[in-house]
Simulated scan of single mutants.
Amino acid sequence: MKSSNKQGMRCFLLLIFLLIFSNSTIIAQHKTFQAHINVVEIDDLKNKIFESQKPYKIVFMFNQFCSVSRDIFPELDALYKNANQKNFELFVVSNTKEKNKEELQNHLFYYGYAEPFYIIKNKPLLGFYKKLIHTICESCDTRKMGYSDFIIFDKNNEVLTQTNHDIVNQLTKDERIVILKKYIQ
């Protein structure tokens, strides 16, 4: 009888040890990965973009549930991680609700994305991207922009280029990457 109690106690202690060790490993892995998720008002994001002194400022519209965003983002991520980052600043804007920030954090952790992400506070129910785009870029065609589109500003906050979801003139993923490569160096 004593032998089975000792064996049961050993199994219990081993189980506790494994739970503690695995939990600390997960926490340690999570701490080493830091996605920079900022929750801001639209006007604050505009100010942040326009205050940047980098030669190029890239605003990328991201949605983790959009297949086009998910398709292009790994390549944008690779460009971002391999670039000098002295010549540009990247602003990845997500349509994620503020209350779902942890879900976005988990998505970014899973894929290893550490770019600076922005969640907009108090966004309108309808026309979010139209309002966002019009606020930061009055000359951009807001009717044709959406997820996976981007705007590139120069140092003086002039629009150099923008992409759009116009079915007739829509760029392929490769064409978008070529444009991004020109500015992400």
Rank of each mutant, 00 (worst) to 15 (best):
S3Y: 01
S3E: 01
N5C: 05
K6E: 06
Q7C: 11
Q7R: 08
L14G: 15
L15E: 00
L15A: 10
I16R: 10
I16E: 02
F17C: 12
S22Q: 07
S22N: 12
Q29S: 12
K31N: 12
F33G: 00
F33I: 07
Q34D: 03
H36S: 15
H36N: 15
V39C: 07
V39Q: 11
V40C: 02
V40Y: 02
E41K: 14
E41Y: 09
L45V: 05
I49E: 01
I49Q: 01
I49T: 03
Q53H: 08
K54L: 06
K54D: 10
P55F: 04
K57S: 03
N63I: 00
Q64W: 08
S67N: 14
F73M: 14
F73N: 12
P74N: 06
D77R: 15
L79Q: 06
L79D: 03
K81D: 08
N82S: 15
K86W: 01
K86L: 06
V92G: 10
V93A: 10
T96V: 12
T96I: 03
K97H: 11
E98K: 13
E103D: 14
Q105E: 14
Y110T: 13
Y110H: 11
Y111K: 13
G112E: 02
Y113K: 10
A114V: 04
Y118G: 03
I119W: 11
I119F: 09
P124D: 08
P124W: 03
L125R: 12
Y129T: 13
C137A: 13
C140I: 05
C140E: 09
C140V: 05
M145A: 05
S148R: 04
F153T: 06
K155D: 06
N156V: 00
N157L: 08
N157Q: 01
L160G: 06
Q162C: 09
H165W: 00
H165E: 09
H165P: 00
V168Q: 12
Q170T: 02
Q170M: 13
Q170L: 04
K173T: 15
E175N: 05
E175T: 06
I179F: 01
Q185N: 14
